[in-house]
């Protein structure tokens, strides 16, 4: 019958991966929007926070690709 263990692992990996990437990217979009607001004192902090979020996002994606390419293992 179906391999429920591997199904569970796939579901969990999908959830963690997608939620991480979408969450971080959303946070980046939000911080970017905040930094674009005129007259905010936290302008610079928000902008660098947004960039950090996007970087984490990119790193997560690259790590995912690294995992699936057998050439690297």
């Amino acid at each position: 019958m179906i391999n429920w263990a591997s199904f569970g692992i796939v579901a969990l990996a999908t959830l963690i991966g997608a939620v991480t990437v979408v969450g971080m990217y959303s946070l980046g979009v939000r911080l970017w929007a905040v930094s674009a607001d005129a007259g905010t004192s936290a302008h610079r902090t928000a902008r660098s926070g947004a960039i950090a979020c996007f970087a984490v996002c990119g790193a997560a994606v690259l790590y995912g690709i690294y995992l699936i390419v057998p050439f690297f293992h």
Binding site: N3, V10, T14, I68
Partner: peptide, 12 residues
Amino acid sequence: AAAILASSHLGF
């Protein structure tokens, strides 16, 4: 993307 990559890597 997460689902496809996870499944093709984990053999499901």
